[in-house]
Amino acid sequence: MKNFVIRLWFLADLMLIGFAAPAISAEPKLNMTQGVTEISGRVYELHMLIFYICCAIAVVVFGAIFFSIVRHRKSRGAVAASFHESTKIEILWTLIPIVILILMAIPATKTLIAMEDTSQSDLTVQITGSQWKWHYRYFDQDVAFFSLLTTSQQQIQGVDEKGEHYLLEVDQPLVLPAHRKVRFLLTSDDVIHSWWVPDFAVKKDAIPGFINEAWTRVDKPGIYRGQCAELCGRAHGFMPVVVQVLEPEAFDTWLTDKKNALAEEAASAQSALSQTLSLEALMRQGEAVYLDRCAVCHQPTGVGIPGAFPAIKGSPVATGALELHLDTVLNGRAGTAMQAFANQLTEQEIAAVVTYQRNAWGNNTNDAVQAADVNAYKQRLEAVKEGQ
């Protein structure tokens, strides 16, 4: 009997340690992050309140169970009661959980209502998910850009040592102002994605054909990281979110500089239409574009993934008619993961990557596609659409 009691106390100690560990541990991995926004703080407090309620319920329930086992054991001559039901007890154990649920629902409802209140925002950003990148557009600011993973293929393949922010680093983070309410409008170009930044307590699905809303107000400048939280395809793990929060004055400066940089990029893309590059120059630029945009599906060696993504090496698209190749890159392929890159890449970048695909891995077509060729093809497509 002594051993039996010792085992019961041992199990009780393990349960209490398990319940208390997340609350007392200094390691953030063992508990929900408190975040850096008012909403994230409220979510954390709600989480802890319900956690403590659950702990109290567990102590009462398991305490009653262990007490009954020890106090009314057979060796002490305990005899089972002869009654079969008790209306008072049944009413009591029905009313108590209802009251507890109501007490939990009140703060939960208030927090949920606050999380959905996107009114009176100072800035609106449209977030569009596509396999596998994010596109950000600032309303009324003429600023829009894609945010791409920058972790190298060498790290992903295990050749190089993984960096501090492995798979959580991008070329262009979303930049937001501190102390201002920012509304997010979320949608998708292809499949369901989910934009998630734990420090903001923002996790909202991006669904094709629908627009979901969320918001945040960050009072602490810094860099915050998240990722797509929806299983959106093979490269789901390569779709990070990075948000840089600046003081309002610094944000305004960044916004002006970004507008100027985008205007310069547009002017450069326009001037590229009159340039003629050598095959070697196109191949160098095309390889860089390919590794950034195409290699995740078609692989750096161009062999693709059998059954999922077709090979470019020796493919009829890359070795056949140039117009078919341009159409595939520009407009994508319906019903597949092949995206339309017409609005993602400049004419010069498309010309370079098509040239690279048509000459790499032994394809050797010797075609040197120029930006003017891509622009001419796009104009022909627009003329056909207008004619229809």
Rank of each mutant, 00 (worst) to 15 (best):
C228R: 02
G335F: 06
A342I: 15
V245T: 00
T276H: 14
Q299V: 08
I211R: 06
T128D: 01
T328E: 09
Y138S: 01
T336N: 05
I24G: 04
A295I: 07
K181C: 07
M32K: 11
Q270N: 14
T276D: 06
Q388P: 03
E161P: 01
E349D: 14
L30M: 04
I156W: 01
D13K: 14
M15Q: 10
G63T: 08
V289I: 15
Y44C: 03
Y136P: 00
L291F: 05
L101I: 04
D205P: 02
Q348M: 12
L326S: 10
H298D: 04
A105Y: 13
Q285H: 10
E213W: 03
L326F: 12
A371G: 12
T346F: 04
L112I: 15
K110H: 06
M115A: 14
P97W: 02
I50L: 11
E287P: 09
C54S: 08
V99L: 01
E249L: 05
P28E: 09
V384S: 11
W254T: 06
L324F: 13
S75E: 15
V329G: 07
T150Q: 09
I106G: 02
L167W: 00
A334N: 08
F184Y: 06
A23L: 15
I223R: 00
G63Y: 09
G35E: 04
A269G: 15
Q339N: 10
F66A: 07
A272K: 11
H325L: 06
V369H: 09
L246E: 02
T124S: 13
A334V: 11
T118P: 06
R358M: 10
T301G: 15
A108P: 04
G158V: 09
G222C: 01
S274N: 11
Q344F: 07
T118C: 13
A108G: 08
F62Q: 05
H135K: 11
G226H: 00
L92W: 11
V43S: 03
T33W: 00
C232F: 06
W195R: 00
H298P: 12
I57V: 15
G129T: 09
A263D: 10
E230H: 14
W134I: 02
L92I: 15
I350K: 06
I57Q: 06
G286V: 09
I65F: 04
Q126H: 07
N31A: 12
E287A: 10
V384M: 11
V245Q: 00
Y166A: 05
T118M: 04
T336P: 09
H47T: 07
A23D: 04
Q141K: 15
V191H: 13
P240Q: 02
A351V: 13
